[in-house]
Computed example of a mutant assay.
Amino acid sequence: MDNKYLDSLFNNTIEGIIIIEDGFIKNINNAMLDILKYEKKEELINKLATGILIPNIHKKFLEFNNDIYEEVTLFSKNAEIVPAIIKIKDFEYENSSYKILYVLNLTELKQNETLLIEQSRMAAMGEMISMIAHQWKQPLASIAAAISNLKFRLEIDKIDKESLQNKLVDMDKYIIYMSETIDDFRNFFKKDKEKMLVSLDYIVDISLEMLNKPLSNIKVTNKKIKLNKLYIYKNELLQVMLNILNNSQDAFSENKIENPTINISYKETHDEQIIIIKDNAGGIPKNIIDKIFDPYFTTKEKRNGTGLGLYMCKTIIEKHFKGEIKVKSEKQNTSFKIIINKFI
């Protein structure tokens, strides 16, 4: 096998390859040049590898085809940030030690992930609009009744200042409630631009308030403990909570559970905070429980389920909170455990 053939093989691989000696780039293939938007190898050869490769402060790894890859950030020629995963091998050649880096570009994958998150949010928006209508129905009916009562009193000329004042106070309360409700939902659909210092139980409280009407016939227990506040993306975690609680509510309805209950509890360790949501909505069949976090897997075809809800919950918790989401189902009970890394 001649050098010309090996050189052709080196330059026509799908993944990028960098050969490093003592921290300096000694060779680079064409796929790597494309990833970094360089035209010639000479622009990078004998330059420090740290000029293009930025390790993450907290090392992140993922498994692919039984190999472990490290997630890193690359810096392209035009100063763009390129997400990537790398695998490093040590090898010896002519009494010299080298490192060979195999690089896979994650840009398209990250873009698709962002699109999926937005698609999931849009699917949730339809449900949220229905919830807003449900939340507003009672206060609107109360305001209409108060107005009708006042009109009747005016017509028969039997209205007094005190009763008028009381009716106006009641209507004002309903309007404030409706305003707060719409603000809650509007804030949910804002894209988080920065992390907020909040406690997990506060986010759970918001989710329960937003689902107040849909969950009104369900006994919800929220067993709070003292939790340290975390710098996190509030709306991301809120999306996870709303999805899981909505799934429980749907399961209660579908399975016609007579005494529906949801129990929410918390745990805190040195490294993690945990939310546990447990319901008695009928459980998850063993033949599908391993699939519920897969993209586009749904048991709600008749109700236009997208199959993205739990997949996005898993993606959000793993990618944005460096955590994990687990599910366990026994008999009629299902519990979701949301594990969040405190040092993200």
Rank of each mutant, 00 (worst) to 15 (best):
D2R: 09
L6Q: 13
S8N: 14
F10N: 08
F10W: 14
G16M: 01
I18S: 06
I19C: 00
I20T: 04
I20P: 13
I20Q: 12
D22A: 03
I25Y: 07
I25P: 06
K26S: 00
N27H: 09
N30R: 06
E39Q: 10
K40L: 03
E43R: 01
L44A: 01
A49C: 08
I52L: 02
K59C: 04
E63F: 09
N65V: 03
I68R: 00
E71S: 10
K77Q: 14
A79Y: 14
P83E: 13
I85G: 07
I85H: 02
N95I: 06
N95M: 12
Y98L: 01
Y98H: 03
V103Q: 08
N105A: 07
E108M: 09
L109T: 11
L109C: 05
K110F: 13
E113Q: 15
L116H: 04
E118R: 11
E118G: 08
Q119K: 14
A124E: 01
M128W: 06
S130H: 13
A133W: 04
K137N: 12
L140P: 00
A141D: 04
S148P: 00
N149M: 11
K151F: 12
D157W: 01
D157N: 15
D157K: 15
D160F: 05
N166L: 15
N166F: 07
V169C: 02
I175S: 07
S179R: 06
F185C: 02
F189T: 08
K191E: 10
S199Q: 11
Y202D: 04
V204E: 03
I206M: 05
N212T: 00
N212C: 05
K213P: 13
K219W: 03
V220C: 06
T221P: 04
T221Q: 05
K223P: 02
I225M: 08
L227N: 10
N228L: 09
L230F: 12
I232F: 13
Y233M: 14
E236Y: 15
Q239T: 15
S248K: 14
S248Q: 10
F252S: 13
F252P: 09
S253L: 14
E254C: 03
E254N: 15
E258N: 15
P260R: 07
P260W: 03
N263E: 15
D271C: 05
E272D: 14
I284Y: 06
I292T: 00
K300F: 04
K302Q: 09
T306F: 02
L308D: 03
L310F: 10
M312L: 12
K314Y: 11
K322H: 12
I325Y: 05
I325M: 07
V327Q: 02
V327E: 00
E330N: 10
K342I: 01
